[in-house]
Design a protein around this nucleic acid. Sequence first.
DNA 1: GTTCTCGTCTGAACCGGTTTAGGTTCGAGG
DNA 2: CCTCGAACCTAAACCGGTTCAGACGAGAAC
Lengths: 349, 349
Amino acid sequence: MTAASRPTIADVARAAGVSKGLVSFALNGRPGVAADTRARILAAADDLGWTPSVRARSLSTGRSFACGLVIGRSPDVIAADPFFPSFIAGVEDEFSTTGQVLVLAVAAPGEEETEVYRTLAAGRRVDGVILSDLRAADDRIALVEELGLAGVTLGVPDIRSPFSSVSIDDGAGVRAAVDHLVSLGHTRLAHIAGPSWMLHAAHRRAAFDDAVATAGIDAIVVETDFSAAQGAAATEHLLDLDEAPTGIVYSNDQMAVAGLGVAQRRGIPVPAQLSLTGFDDTDIGRYLYPALTSVATQARLWGSRAARSLLDAVAGADPEEIALPSPTLIVRGSTGPAPHPPTRGSGRA
Amino acid sequence: MTAASRPTIADVARAAGVSKGLVSFALNGRPGVAADTRARILAAADDLGWTPSVRARSLSTGRSFACGLVIGRSPDVIAADPFFPSFIAGVEDEFSTTGQVLVLAVAAPGEEETEVYRTLAAGRRVDGVILSDLRAADDRIALVEELGLAGVTLGVPDIRSPFSSVSIDDGAGVRAAVDHLVSLGHTRLAHIAGPSWMLHAAHRRAAFDDAVATAGIDAIVVETDFSAAQGAAATEHLLDLDEAPTGIVYSNDQMAVAGLGVAQRRGIPVPAQLSLTGFDDTDIGRYLYPALTSVATQARLWGSRAARSLLDAVAGADPEEIALPSPTLIVRGSTGPAPHPPTRGSGRA
DNA sequence: GTTCTCGTCTGAACCGGTTTAGGTTCGAGG
DNA sequence: CCTCGAACCTAAACCGGTTCAGACGAGAAC
C-alpha cells in the first residue's frame, strides 16, 4: 500500500517462479539458462519495471561503475579554458552508453589534490581516474597506482607509467603556427608558453624552439601560468623589447586574447605590425577583431577516447598508447605578412 | 602475504575484541558505547588503517553520498561559459568537507537530458540533483520529484516546486548596467538577450525592459541563444538600424566580446560611439581593449550555497528560498559617455 | 539397466556496512 | 537480600545484488 519500494531481484524471481541466482544469470545474459526460462525472467523484470541497484551491484562486484576526473587547477584558470567542457562532453559520449558515471572534483595541485585522490580511492568511489594536465615527473601516476586505481593519462608521461595514454601532438600545432608565420616573412618570433612543469606546455615550447631553429630565425620565449593576466604581462614585456617580435605564438587562446588587447591598447595594428596565434581554437577567438588564428584540437574526441581507454583498463586490458589526429592550424585575421622592417641602415619602403 | 585487502569493520571488531555492531556505533559517534571501549575501537580502526566502504554504507543506508549536476546545454555553449567551472568549484567547497561527491553529466535539453535524470535515479546513483539554467515551466522539476530525488533549483521557478532555491538577482545587475549607461547620457539602448525560455535570460530581459521604461528611453531587444555567433549577428543587426543604439547591454560576456569584435570590424570606436556591457565578468573581458564593463556574479558562492541547501534537503530539511547578494556592475573601458548625436536637424557639435 | 554427462536450476554464502531485538552486568532502591 | 532499570554489548537480520557448490532430471553411452 504505502509507496511500493522499487522491485528487487527477489521480486522478479518470485514473479518468474525461479531463484534469485538464476534471475541474476538471466539478466546478465550468462549461459546456463534455458531460453524460455530466460524469456520468462526478462518479461517478469520488464513487467515489474525492475532496474538494477548500482549500489548493491557495486558491493558485490567490487566495482563502482564510476570514474573520476580531478581537475588540478585553480578555478580562475579553469574558468576561461574551454577545454574541459568539451572534453567532458566527450567522456560522457562514452560513459553514458556503458552505464558509467563521471565523478568530477576540482582541486589546486598539491596537498589538497592528493587528498582528493586518496579520498576517492579510500571510499572506493571510482574504478579509475583520468589524469589531465600531465606534469613533469608527475607524482600522481605513482599515487594512483599505489591506490590501486585504474588510470589513463592525457599525453605520454615523461616517466614510467603503468597506464594507457591518449595523446595529441601539440607540437605539430605549434610547428604549423611557426611555419605559417615564417612563410609570411616573419623573422623575429616569440612564444608565450605555459608553465614548464606542465608537460603539454613544455612540449609546445620544445616544438617552438625546434621550429624556429629549423627556420633559422630569432626567437624568444616567455613562461607564464597560462592565465590571461600573465599572458598580457608577457606581451607587454615582449613589446617593450628593443627588437620586439613581429609574431607571437601563444600557448593558449586566452593569453592570445589578452595579448591582442595589449597590442590594441598600445595602438599596434594587428596583423599589420604584429601577428598573433592562439592555441585551442576557442569559439570566442573567431569573433574577435581581428579573428584569432589558432590551433584547433579535438577535445571532445580526446574525451571519448580517454574514457574508452580507461574503461578498457578497468576491465583489465593491457595499457596502450593512443595518438589522436594532429591538431590543425586555423588561419584567421590575426596573422599577416611581416611588416616591412624600419630597420636601421636599410631604408627600404 | 598476498595483497592484504583493505580492512573491514569485522577486522576492526576482532582487533578491538568487540562485535561488528558496536564498532559501527563507535565509529559513527553514537551513544551507548563506553568511553574506553570507544577509544579502543577507534585506536584499532586507526591502527588497521580502516576506512569505510562507501559502497557498503550506501547499500545499507539507502543513500548514495553523491549528488548530480546535469548541464543541459550543448557543449559549444558551455565551453565559453565560465560560470560552471566556478560554480562547480563552489559545490566542491561544500561537498569535499562532507564526503559527498559530485556526479557530472552533460546533455542537450530534451529527450537525452530526461534520460540522464532517469538513469541517475534508476541506479540510485545520486541522492539529489542541482537544477541549473532553470527554464520556463521547467518539466525537470516534476521529473525529479517523481523520481524521488532531492533537488535544489538555481533561481526561483515560475511554477510550484517542492525544492529549495538559491537565487541571485540578475535583474539588479541589468538595472545597474542600464542605469550606468543612462547616467552617461545614453538615450538609445539595446539588450541582446538569451533565449526567453531560460528563466534567468527572461529575468534579465524583464529587468532591462523595466529599467529603460523607468528611465523613459528608447530601447530594443534582440533574442539569441547565448552563443557568440548569435551575439555577433544580433549586434550586426542593431548596428544596421537607422537609429542604431549607442549602448548595448548583453546578457552574457561571450556575446559582448563578439559584439565588440563586430564594432571594431566596422570601425566603430568603443566606447566613443558605442558602449557595451557584458554579464558574468569573465576573466577575459578584463584583458580586452577596451576592457569590458560587466556584471559580476558570485558563481562560486552560488555553488557552495546550492550544495549546502541540497545536502540539507537530502537530510530531510524543509525547502527554503535563499537569496544571494546582488551582483555588482564592474565598470571598465567599454562604456563611456553617449556620443554627441549627429542627428538630422540639430547640428550641435 | 546402470552410469556418466550435460544442461538447468536451487540454496546459501558473500560483499561491508547499519540497525534492532535482546542478553549481561552492575548499582541503586526497597 | 531481592528487584529493577540503565548502561553496555552481542548476535543476527538486512540492504540487493553476484557467485559457487551441488541437486536434479534427462538423454547418451556402455
